[in-house]
Simulated scan of single mutants.
Amino acid sequence: MNAICRSNFNLSYTAFPSLLFQVFLAHNNWTTMSRRVNTARRFADSGSLPFMGSLHPKSRPSPLLSIGLVVVGALLIIGYIYRGSGGRSGDIAALNRLDGGVSCTLEVQKIIPILKKTYGDSMRKVLHVGPDTCSVISQLLKEEDTEAWGVEPYELDDVDGNCKSLVHKGTVRVADIKFPLPYRAKSFSLVIVSDALDYLSPKYLNTTVPELARVAADGLVLLSGQPGQQRVKVAELSKFGRPAKRRSSTWWIRFFIRTGFHENESAAKKFEQAAAKNSYESTCQVFHLKPSH
């Protein structure tokens, strides 16, 4: 269904409302015309207007037309919601637009060039952890001299052929990050995490963050939502098991100190400079940490 909607109704955001309005306007016009014709016929049948029958067609518009217009309108709505490519990434983007929420995984895709300038050679072997990791990995693999792997913390569903291929090759794995990752220590030069830690309680954060740092050789980049940001509650409960906990930067800093992590000040400064040069302002909190080893 997603593929049909994307291929047949790949509309721009500005064109969609106009087209949908025209569909329903046409439906209303047909309904109004039908009522007028019926009224005219009642006058004609009563003999009040002897020539009215010759001025209006005798055939009534088929009710199938109204049904068809309603079906087309429904399909346009579905096509608008599922517009986009990359399997579930289109769904996440649509949900964010409708609810005003923010996806830090989408932010990762935007800041890849900035991360390249920040970490340089440390971007040669990257692990991304977070929902819709297939989209992130696909973009990372397009970068020159960059190898990338991904961990999807939640179930994969409605994925496209590219994501299925990445899973089949073992490039992307589905793994519960509350347990040890299936990688050896220092397997990756850089580990990037997005939209994953906000759904963990402090109990699991105490074990998960050190585990993420264990497999990172040069650095750890964590993206977390800002306090006050809203997400789609139904999607959260069905997908992640609990709503996201938006923690402040002060909370995270205290957590890092308590668990023995230190900020990578050099990387943080380079990231800020590169972001300013690209006129980029992040909608998520970005933390740069040194490996614990």
Rank of each mutant, 00 (worst) to 15 (best):
W252F: 07
C163E: 05
A15C: 12
P210C: 04
C104W: 01
S282N: 11
A93T: 02
L11S: 01
G241I: 09
A93E: 01
L205W: 14
T32W: 12
S48D: 06
G101R: 06
E211T: 01
F256C: 08
G120I: 10
S12F: 06
A74R: 08
S7H: 10
E143D: 05
L140Y: 08
D91Q: 07
D145N: 13
P291D: 04
W252T: 06
G161C: 11
R124L: 00
R214P: 00
L220R: 01
D157S: 15
K277F: 04
S34R: 15
A26I: 01
C163H: 02
R231I: 08
G219R: 00
I253W: 13
S66A: 14
R36E: 09
S34D: 08
R97K: 10
R173Y: 07
F255S: 09
N162S: 11
S66W: 03
V172K: 07
E147H: 11
R242P: 00
S48P: 04
I4Y: 09
R184P: 01
P50M: 15
G90F: 03
P291E: 09
A74C: 11
D45C: 14
E147W: 06
R242I: 05
H288Q: 14
R36W: 10
E211D: 08
A213N: 00
I92V: 07
W251C: 11
N10S: 10
F24Q: 08
L200M: 09
H288I: 08
S279R: 13
A148L: 11
